[in-house]
């Protein structure tokens, strides 16, 4: 069971966002780093089919992101860079429950699952709060809960500690650490991906380093020129 890229590339019009690459991702914790516009978000969005490969193919636990796109969305959850945009119902409880609708669950089952996931991330006290009034750290935790509740086996987080204060950063980092899913994190927060098993570095649409965290981060400093 793994994420598999086979000669996958992405072009938007004339612009190549990602040059062809082939690799297999099976590690439990994977970091993705690189400068702004380096192709790392495009790479991550290929995994749950939000972006489709222009050439080649991407499979997630055996499911093709083009042919089985609905199934892939259930397999790989995505937490967006601005999680405020991801929470689309007015109240926290409603938002989490909404992700469970149209799945053949009874209202009681939906309520039970909602309460369980809020408790799992220690945010039960936020259940009745307005989404729009949550703090940055709270928003991030609720966004993670809203995706985890639907039962994905892989989680992709785009800049999860962006704009968080030190305390919330530590809280979110600990939460990510405790996730049982395979996790991919895109981040400029090098301390966050430091302990990961594998870190990928993108530069100008190419994968230029792939390996242990220390080595990849060192290479990143060279590329960035500092």
């Amino acid at each position: 069971m793994a994420i598999q890229f086979t000669d996958s590339s992405v072009r938007f019009g004339q612009k190549t966002a990602l040059h062809p690459l082939s690799l297999t991702l099976a590690e439990r914790r994977i970091g993705i780093i690189g400068l702004n516009g380096s192709g790392k978000t495009t790479f991550a969005r290929l995994i749950n089919g939000l972006v489709k490969p222009t050439e080649g193919r991407v499979t997630v636990n055996g499911l093709d992101t083009v042919a089985d796109d609905r199934a892939v969305l259930g397999e790989a959850g995505f937490i967006f860079q601005n999680p405020q945009h991801q929470l689309i119902m007015p109240i926290v409880r409603e938002d989490i429950a909404f992700g469970l609708k149209n799945r053949g669950l009874t209202n009681a089952e939906i309520a039970a699952k909602t309460n369980a996931v809020l408790a799992r991330f220690s945010v039960s006290h936020l259940a009745g709060r307005r989404v729009h009034e949550l703090s940055g750290g709270e928003t991030q935790l609720v966004a993670i809960a809203s995706v985890v509740v639907t039962g994905p086996k892989i989680l992709i987080l785009d800049e999860p500690t962006n704009q968080l204060d030190l305390k919330n950063r530590r809280l979110v980092a600990a939460t990510i650490d405790g996730l049982e899913q395979q996790v991919l994190v895109i981040s400029h927060d090098l301390g966050l991906v430091d302990g990961f098993e594998r870190v990928l570095l993108f530069h100008e649409g190419q994968l230029i380093a792939d390996g242990q965290a220390d080595d990849t981060i060192r290479r990143y400093h060279e590329v960035a020129g500092c």
Binding site: R70, F80, H85, I88, N102, T150
Partner: peptide, 18 residues
């Protein structure tokens, strides 16, 4: 301008099964 990311998030969370 938020429409694109919100729409993407709705699809990513599988709210609308096509």
């Amino acid at each position: 301008k938020d429409a694109d990311t919100i729409a993407m998030a709705i699809d990513a969370r599988g709210f609308r099964r096509q």
